[in-house]
């Protein structure tokens, strides 16, 4: 999913004619590996026909980051045209400005900067940014869609992969968007988010919530919460009431005993201060 976030600017003049607001929308991402006009059209037609209603007039982002061969301006124009023939709406192209800037200008579409997920610090990794995942390479172009829009709650999705053998019920999201779960996490359940994680409900004893980013719990944390599991030391844990079995940020943890020795007013946040975990009001 790719979203567009704009700053909200309130006009100060009297009788404003407009207001600029932020929004985020779900788009289809077409990740291009190679381009040949006839093959592309036939493969895309197959994809679109598989779910005609889904693709009908849906906005499409063409991602050139995974391109393995060169592409000419004429090809790009042709590609955009073919998308339109199939009733898709290309809205933007993602790729390096130096490489594709001039070409994209000819198409009249917006050019979005590359996702430099590797050299970007994790805490600024926006909630709307999707890092392309490796595909099996069977298709020359893969259409990657997710349905986690601003109101998306992928809470009941079947787990695509187990994080830990033995844990029975796992909700795992490799999606680089904030995962919102509006139910209580029960003993024995595990939730993993590749970005931020928001739980609306309690995290009960024996439950485990993990996120590469921050964890927000609108309820009581009685189980385990591990934020910044891929090493983001700036990640934080927020909860309305803390009586956790364990809290951890980027590998440094406090067990229940140590948590209860500290005095803190609820609600609390937990963050890294050097090598220590600090618990404080927010």
């Amino acid at each position: 999913m790719v979203g567009f976030i704009f700053l909200e600017i309130k006009a100060t003049v009297t009788d404003p004619l407009f207001q600029i607001k932020g929004t985020s929308l779900t788009v289809v991402v077409l990740e291009l590996y190679n381009y040949s006009p006839s093959d592309f059209l036939s493969q895309l037609t197959d994809k679109v026909q598989a779910a005609a209603h889904f693709f009908e007039q849906s906005p499409v982002l063409i991602n050139l980051e995974k391109l393995v061969s060169d592409i000419q301006a004429a090809d790009l124009l042709n590609l955009v045209d073919q998308c339109r023939q199939l009733r898709l709406q290309p809205v933007a192209i993602r790729g390096s400005h130096d490489q594709f800037g001039a070409m994209v200008e000819q198409t009249g579409l917006a050019l979005l900067p590359e996702t430099r997920s590797k050299d970007r610090p994790l805490e600024t990794n926006p909630v709307t940014d999707k890092t392309p995942e490796a595909t099996d390479g069977a298709d020359k172009s893969a259409i990657d869609t997710t349905n986690t829009g601003s109101n998306g709650t992928p809470d009941n999705e079947p787990a695509p992969a187990a994080v830990e053998a033995g844990a029975e019920e796992i909700t795992t999201s490799q999606d680089q968007t904030t995962q919102i779960i509006s139910r209580q996490i029960r003993s024995g359940q595990q939730v993993y988010s590749a970005a931020d994680l928001i739980i609306i409900g309690n995290v009960n004893e024996g439950a485990e919530v993990l996120a590469q980013g921050n964890i927000h719990i609108y309820g009581t944390l009685r189980g385990r919460a591990l934020a910044g599991v891929q090493g983001n030391t700036k990640a934080r844990i927020f909860c309305q009431q803390l009586s956790a079995e364990l809290i951890a940020i980027a590998g440094n943890f406090l067990p229940s005993e140590a948590i209860h020795q500290q005095n803190y007013p609820d609600p609390v946040q937990v963050y890294r201060n050097g090598e220590n975990l600090e618990i404080s009001a927010y």
């Binding site: 009941n156 029975e168 019920e169 029960r186 003993s187 024995g188 359940q189 009960n204 004893e205 024996g206 439950a207």
Partner: peptide
């Protein structure tokens, strides 16, 4: 209480109603 919590989790994920949505 903890064991009941666990069985509730199983009800919510491994019952026929949960599996078929």
């Amino acid at each position: 209480v903890r064991d009941s919590d666990r069985i509730l989790g199983i009800l919510q994920s491994k019952s026929l109603r949960a599996e078929t949505g």
